[in-house]
């Protein structure tokens, strides 16, 4: 078996003495869609912040493409190909949609291919094309999420990490967003996805991890999860 693209081993993290994540270990193989499922406030976003370098873990290691990366600054990690697609509050509110996208291609490698890539983004997310000159803060929740996705895709990473892509959105918008994720998976992109809601990912995910109060309590694929009604009820409220 080959090395996974991303490997997390015995990770602990927390804020000001309060432990949020305990002994998290998981692998993300190249080309796979791995998900982390769990209720809000149980450390999902914290894990993504640790991987993307916005936060330093207190213990454990993170390896990417065979090299240890925990403790590196976020901008260095983007250059290595770790791209986080945050929730809608992580945009540049006073910039136009176009400038936000352009920021996604900030690094030289991505910048060189921006013009070509941005057209692809517009076909994938046509709503953005309609709104290129609008300021990000004037967008609706769904549009912001799409902009975040578009911006992340333009960074051209080797792994995409989605932070609760469906949170707070209308079902029809969620459908659109998962369509995009489905497309990305079909293209063979490596994806780590964090969600609260199991519905959309049971079919999609290659492997699902359940997170409860900062610990992984169960791991398996979608069918196993489906058959384990009890787990679903206990952790995800059915």
């Amino acid at each position: 078996m080959t090395e996974p693209l991303l490997r997390i081993d015995g990770l602990h993290a927390g804020y000001e003495g309060q432990i949020v994540l305990r002994d998290i270990s998981l692998d993300v193989p190249e080309g796979a869609l791995i998900t982390l499922l769990g209720p809000n406030g149980h450390g999902k976003t914290t894990l993504l912040r640790c991987i993307s370098g916005l936060m330093k873990p207190s213990k454990g290691r993170i390896e990417f493409a065979g090299k240890r990366i925990d403790g590196l600054e976020a901008d260095k990690l983007v250059a290595r190909g770790i791209v986080m697609i945050p929730q809608g509050d992580m945009l540049f509110p006073e910039m136009s949609v176009y400038d936000n996208l352009k920021m996604g291609a900030y690094l030289p490698v991505a910048r060189a291919k921006f013009d070509e890539n941005v057209e692809r983004i517009y076909t994938l997310l046509p709503r953005l094309k309609e709104r290129t000159t609008q300021l990000a803060r004037t967008l609706s929740g769904g549009e912001r999420r799409m902009l975040a996705i578009g911006r992340g895709l333009l960074s051209g990473g080797r792994i995409l990490m989605f932070d609760e892509p469906s949170l707070g959105l209308a079902p029809i918008v969620i459908d659109q967003i998962y369509e995009v994720i489905n497309d990305l998976k079909a293209q063979g992109r490596t994806i780590l996805l964090v969600e609260e809601n199991a519905d959309r990912i049971i079919e999609l995910a290659d492997r699902i991890h359940l997170l409860d109060t900062g610990q992984i309590v169960w791991a398996g694929d979608g069918h196993e999860l489906d058959s384990q009604q009890q787990i679903l009820e206990t952790y995800l409220g059915g």
């Binding site: 600054e73 976020a74 901008d75 983007v78 945050p86 540049f92 006073e94 352009k102 920021m103 900030y106």
Partner: peptide, 24 residues
């Protein structure tokens, strides 16, 4: 300019700027 946009990006949302690779 790219650098100028990065300055605005950092001012508007520091973490978001770091996430797109801006060395803040």
């Amino acid at each position: 300019t790219t650098a100028g946009r990065a300055v605005r990006a950092v001012a508007q949302n520091r973490d978001a700027a770091r996430l797109v690779g801006v060395p803040v």
